[in-house]
Amino acid sequence: MTSPDRSSLLARSEAHLREARLGYVEHFGVAVGIGSSLVTAGAACLLHAIVPGTSPTRQAASCAGSTARSSAISARPAPPTCTSSNMRSEAGS
C-alpha cells in the first residue's frame, strides 16, 4: 500500500476547508461532533438489534441535529437523509 503524496493531501485539505468556509479548528469541532453523533447512533442501533425494546429513534434525531448544525455553519444545504425506503430504491437501480 502506497502512502498519498503529502503535498496533494495538504492541497486537498486546504481546498476542502475553503469550500466549507471553515477554519481548521472549527472544521475539527464540527467533524468530531458529527462523528460522535454517528458513533452514538450506531451504538444505539446495535443495542436495538440485541434488545428490540430499545429505540434508536432518539439517537438518530440527535445525529440529524448534528448534520443541521454543520449545514448552518457552512451555509450549505444539508445532505439528503438516508431512509430505508430511498436506500431500497437506490439498491434496486
Rank of each mutant, 00 (worst) to 15 (best):
residue 1 M to A: 13
residue 1 M to T: 15
residue 3 S to F: 15
residue 3 S to R: 15
residue 4 P to R: 00
residue 4 P to N: 02
residue 5 D to K: 07
residue 7 S to T: 10
residue 7 S to F: 05
residue 7 S to N: 12
residue 8 S to E: 13
residue 9 L to S: 12
residue 10 L to P: 05
residue 11 A to Y: 07
residue 12 R to I: 13
residue 16 H to E: 08
residue 17 L to E: 01
residue 18 R to F: 10
residue 21 R to C: 12
residue 22 L to S: 01
residue 23 G to E: 13
residue 25 V to D: 03
residue 26 E to Q: 05
residue 26 E to L: 07
residue 27 H to M: 04
residue 28 F to V: 12
residue 30 V to Q: 12
residue 31 A to T: 15
residue 33 G to K: 08
residue 33 G to I: 02
residue 33 G to S: 10
residue 34 I to T: 04
residue 35 G to M: 07
residue 36 S to V: 09
residue 38 L to S: 02
residue 40 T to P: 04
residue 41 A to Q: 01
residue 41 A to K: 01
residue 41 A to H: 03
residue 42 G to R: 05
residue 43 A to E: 03
residue 45 C to W: 04
residue 45 C to R: 03
residue 46 L to I: 04
residue 46 L to R: 04
residue 48 H to V: 03
residue 49 A to I: 02
residue 50 I to D: 06
residue 51 V to D: 03
residue 52 P to D: 03
residue 54 T to Y: 04
residue 55 S to K: 03
residue 55 S to I: 03
residue 56 P to E: 00
residue 58 R to V: 09
residue 60 A to H: 04
residue 61 A to M: 10
residue 61 A to Q: 10
residue 63 C to D: 06
residue 63 C to Q: 09
residue 67 T to C: 05
residue 67 T to P: 00
residue 70 S to K: 07
residue 73 I to A: 13
residue 73 I to R: 12
residue 75 A to S: 15
residue 80 P to R: 08
residue 81 T to V: 10
residue 82 C to E: 12
residue 82 C to K: 02
residue 83 T to A: 01
residue 84 S to R: 14
residue 87 M to W: 04
residue 87 M to P: 01
residue 88 R to W: 00
residue 91 A to V: 01
residue 92 G to V: 08
residue 93 S to Q: 10
